[in-house]
Computed example of a mutant assay.
Amino acid sequence: MQKKRRQVIRKGNVVVFPGTLERLHREGRLAMERDLHQEAVRNFESVLEIDPEDYTVFDGLAISLYEMKEYERAKEFALLAMQNQAGDYIEILELYLSISIQLQQYDEVELTIQGLLEKEIIPQHSLQKFQYLRELNSRLSTRYEEPSIEEPSITSEQFHQMGSMEQQEFLLSLQHQKLQPYIPLLVEVIEAEDMLPVVKTYALMLLQQVGYQESLAVRKYHFETEVNPSRLVSPEEDQFIGEVQFLAKAQFEKDPTASELVVNLILKYSVLLFPFHWGPYTAEEVAGEYVAYTKQLLYGQQTTESSLLSFIRSVDEEMES
């Protein structure tokens, strides 16, 4: 009996070996799950180079490009994903509207949500998300139309009633706004005992952006300090964090996946813990623990669980939850 041959794909003069497309799909989705969005985009784009009509990668491209803040391209692929029914339609629609808000296309967002509600297209379990997007869109569009207003668009009580993701999205939306009316709220967020560390980070970065010079008490986990926001150095520019990333990345010179992951893990921690580092450890010690943690995540390689590694793991798992 003759053995069935797998089909060989040709792209111009280049032969694409059997299993290549499946591998690219698999590696792209895995990279997305690990927040390695540049790698995910590379894999999905390689799929389209081989098969331009493979619409199954459109949703992944939209999500990863959004995470990379490439909003124009992300919106293009989100639209293609919806048109070709790639991925969960309602989730992609929510992403499409979030991208449109980032692009300040407020009229389009309002008209789209209004039409969806009138036609009762949105499932009951997703209504709250779309209503929040509509309210956020309305607040942002009003601020652009009336830039002279000196009152904040929400009260402290309203902010505290938001979920943590809504709080983060709201603070991110203030990056290019007039921050003066929001300073009392930002100070309150930073000094609150029950506020999540990542929410405090966004509030602190906004005060740093506006040059706020009053001393503030910042508490995160077991760390506590007094800071002057105007004198803080962002994680991307922090020399110690940069040294940790350099030392850890150097251990994975021949492993680009591990190299990108370890750099992202360190940056995620530094953003969540901002303005703190890792405590009384040298850059070499911190980098060594991140190398060990990265090998555990990627390859299941076990190592001795130090107190620093345990804390690094708990912080990373909190950000994933």
Rank of each mutant, 00 (worst) to 15 (best):
A81L: 07
L65S: 04
P275V: 04
T294M: 05
F240T: 12
A258V: 03
P275E: 01
V291W: 01
V16N: 02
A40H: 00
I101Y: 01
F170M: 00
A192D: 13
L103K: 03
E146Y: 11
S100H: 03
L79G: 08
L133C: 02
Y299D: 05
M205E: 11
V286E: 02
E135C: 11
G211A: 10
Y132S: 06
Q239I: 11
S230G: 11
Y96L: 13
Y202V: 09
N228L: 14
N137E: 02
A74W: 05
E289F: 05
V263Y: 05
I190S: 01
F223D: 04
Q83F: 04
Q124F: 08
L140V: 03
R219E: 09
E150A: 09
I154S: 00
S314C: 08
Y106P: 00
F58Y: 13
L196D: 10
E94D: 09
A78S: 14
F17M: 11
R42D: 09
M82R: 05
K69S: 14
V315L: 11
P229T: 01
Q301D: 09
L21T: 03
S307R: 14
A78R: 02
N43Y: 09
E157N: 14
F311L: 12
R26D: 08
G279Q: 07
L186R: 02
F240D: 05
F240V: 08
Q245T: 13
Q128V: 15
Q124C: 07
S46Y: 06
N228Y: 14
Q209N: 12
M1L: 11
K178H: 05
S230R: 04
L111I: 13
F246L: 08
